[in-house]
Write a protein that binds this DNA or RNA. Structure first.
Length: 640
RNA sequence: GCGCCCGUAGCUCAGCUGGAUAGAGCAGCGGUCUUCUAAACCGCAGGUCGCAGGUUCGAGUCCUGCCGGGCGCGCCA
């Protein structure tokens, strides 16, 4: 149980009792300290709806509201705000409960844990992973971790690009390099390293291989022709072609795995379900669309008309699922993936963590999936097919009406309750400090591996500049935790929907609202425990320091306590909105509250119950910081 | 042409279904280490929330128009 929902429930009841049923309580942390701990703004909106005097109405609500068990003060203020100051003993008891729940920290487990697919990372296996994959990979990972922690059944899906024309070209190029160049791709200009493809198809520079293949494709018409034929061979299942393709795919995945390990991302081989996985099902997708009379033909291409989207000529948009030459497109693969996730993985909710440029594409794919009934799983034994058909038609009509009435944004993308929810989780581009897409100084693509290396290197320099650093803290593990943590946090702490300006300086400074700041706060707390261990057992206060009896007396203690209790509602907000920056903002606030406490409330120098309570408060703060960072995919450090 | 997103302090950004005096961090200035890690803490300064209307008790937030920027729009992904 968290503070917010507890108050919401009580106040909603009071609102209903005062005559405003279904009115949201609008509970949030108080905007200013003099307003107490929490405020409820719901009376104002409810009174407006009822066309009554807000102040008078709020009075009636307060009349019906009994918070005596948990609030010390319930005040009516301003135009009709309800300000709530929580009772000290109640805070103490909630903190004790949180202390006792070491694993889950009082974050409520959902009653009906949904199965949530998180589709993220999805690199193109033809090339090496670059900065373009960073945001999807770390935002998706943070969301997967958070949802899993809450108790949802999370199934990550790495929808890698492992099929298509590029692979025909690469196979052809690999054959050429092996047969005519003795396995040597060429020599890199930058450092003179010779890039090779050995007999096991090990490649020491995927990106370089791709570039060379592309160059040959663009400049050698004979090769280009062979490459195109190779695509046909690949698609028709030619043995030699498939063998090389498979080996190359494996080699590329090996590279991805290295990046994921360096980044500390959960994705593994079992989560990989690339485009090729859906190959055999693509004709079925088209056949199914035809069966449902959705499939139309235009200029030889097969597709679905969408009334709710217009093309340049103001005609209904035509989403092609099969080209005039018989080939399939990524929209087809996406539809096949939806079917697989709904039918085989039993998804209740599917999150697509991709950049915002694909928003329209997903809106269209989702629209077709809905029309084709791909999002409805046959799980309701009692509902007969004709009933489902009627419901499906109703949904179609409803969503069409919604669009007609210009109810935009989420409403027309969100699905009917009975079906799998499809959500695009978009994020902005990664820009350089010049405001243009982030590139190397030479204007090339920044490889993800290089970026990670540089982050670790920068962390090492920052550490080595400090004189008061603990000797044990100087290690590669520390540099990695700080560097990678800083890299991830810098991204995650920003609202994902906006473009993200990446700056080396910002990273190098490792200052302000950053991962190192959080890691430092954690390390300082650990230091208290180490000091405590060095004290004689008598001085340590025995078991009483360990039982979680906390008394928030001082203002700084109280502020820290309230902040700690807000962890569950923060986690729930992240899960609901898919915005990890909410968690970052919370952690930064929490660290601020802890620093205030740390400055004004001596822990080890106090005595008896006071010390015991403060030690417990420190323990709890450390656990919340550790857990919060863990959910973001960031490691903590015992010393810095 | 149509559609989506964005415009908040010098810079990078928060701002939760409309709520009380718009918040941080950098950078700048000034203070704190004989006391649990100074990668810290405290203070100061910094704003016509792109512009103009509208909706109402109340708008950074909702609506309309304009200006400026980004992205997308049937056989690439």
């Amino acid at each position: 149980m968290n503070i917010k929902t507890t108050l919401e429930r009580r106040i909603s009841d009071a609102l209903a009792a005062a005559g405003a049923a279904e009115a949201p309580a609008m509970v949030k942390p108080a905007s200013r300290p003099e307003f107490g701990d929490y405020q409820a703004d719901g009376c104002l909106a409810a009174a407006k709806k009822m066309k009554t005097n807000p102040r008078k109405f709020a009075e009636a609500v307060v009349e019906k509201l009994d918070l005596s068990d948990l609030a010390e003060k319930v005040e009516l203020a301003g135009a009709g705000f309800i300000n709530i100051t929580l009772k000290r003993d109640w805070l103490d008891s909630r903190l004790a409960a949180m202390f006792a729940d070491e694993k889950h920290l009082c974050v409520p487990i959902p009653k009906n844990p949904e199965t949530v697919i998180v589709d993220y990372s999805g690199p193109n296996l033809a090339k090496e992973m670059h900065v373009g994959h960073l945001r999807s990979t770390i935002i998706g990972d943070a969301l997967a971790r958070t949802l899993q922690f809450i108790g949802y059944n999370v199934i990550p899906q790495n929808h890698v690009g492992d099929w298509g024309t590029q692979f025909g070209m690469l196979v052809e190029f690999i054959l050429y390099v092996r047969k005519e160049k003795g396995g040597i791709v060429g020599e890199r200009d930058t450092d003179g390293v010779v890039v090779t493809v050995d007999s096991d198809l090990r490649i020491n520079d995927l990106e370089f291989l791709y570039r060379m293949a592309k160059r040959k494709y663009d400049t050698d018409p004979e090769f280009a022709e062979k490459a195109r034929k190779r695509v046909v061979l690949l698609q028709s299942g030619d043995k030699e072609t498939l063998e090389i393709w498979e080996k190359f795919r494996k080699e590329s995945l090996r590279h991805c795995k290295k990046v994921y390990e360096a980044l500390g991302v959960l994705l593994s081989d079992k989560d990989v379900r690339g485009e090729s996985f859906y190959n055999d099902d693509l004709p079925n997708v088209v056949a199914d669309l035809e069966k449902r009379s959705l499939l139309k033909i235009s200029d030889g291409a097969k597709g679905v008309y969408l009334e709710e989207f217009k093309n340049q000529d103001d005609k209904p948009f035509f989403m092609i699922v099969q080209k005039s030459d018989g080939g399939y497109l990524y929209a087809t693969t996406d539809l096949a993936a939806i079917r697989y996730r709904v039918q085989e993985l039993h998804a209740d909710r599917i999150l697509y963590v991709t950049d915002s440029r694909q928003a329209q594409h997903f809106a269209q794919v989702f629209a077709v999936a809905k029309k084709a009934d791909f999002v409805n799983r046959a799980r309701h034994n009692q509902s007969t097919p004709w009933l489902r058909l009627i419901i499906g038609k109703l949904i179609n009509i409803l969503s069409f009406l919604l669009v007609l009435f210009h109810i935009k944004r989420k409403t027309n993308i969100r699905e009917h309750k009975l079906s799998t929810k499809l959500e695009h989780v978009p994020f902005g581009m990664m820009l350089g400090t010049d405001g243009r897409p982030f590139k190397t100084r030479e204007g090339g693509t920044v490889k993800l591996m290089d970026l990670i290396d540089q982050a670790e290197y920068a962390a090492g320099i920052a550490m080595d500049q400090r004189e008061d650093v603990y000797p044990q803290a100087r290690s590669y593990k520390t540099y990695k935790a700080i560097g990678v943590g800083a890299l991830k946090y810098a991204d995650l702490s920003q609202n994902r929907t906006s473009d993200y300006v990446f700056s080396w300086d910002k990273m190098l400074s490792l200052d302000g609202n950053t991962a190192p700041y959080m890691q430092y706060a954690y390390a300082r707390i650990q230091s208290i425990f180490r000091k405590q261990d060095e004290m004689s057992p008598a001085c340590q206060g025995g078991d009483s320091a360990m039982n979680g009896t906390i008394h928030v007396v001082e203002p700084a203690e109280r502020a820290l306590g309230v902040k700690l209790l807000q962890f569950p509602e923060t986690i729930e907000a992240v899960a609901e909105t898919c915005l990890p920056n909410i968690l970052c903002a919370y952690l930064y606030d929490l660290a601020g509250a802890f620093m205030g406490f740390y400055e004004t409330c001596p822990v080890l120098k106090s005595e008896g119950d006071i010390r015991a309570g403060r030690v417990a408060l420190c323990k709890l703060a450390a656990r919340v910081i550790q857990k919060g960072l863990e959910l973001l995919g960031i490691d903590v450090l015992e010393q810095m």
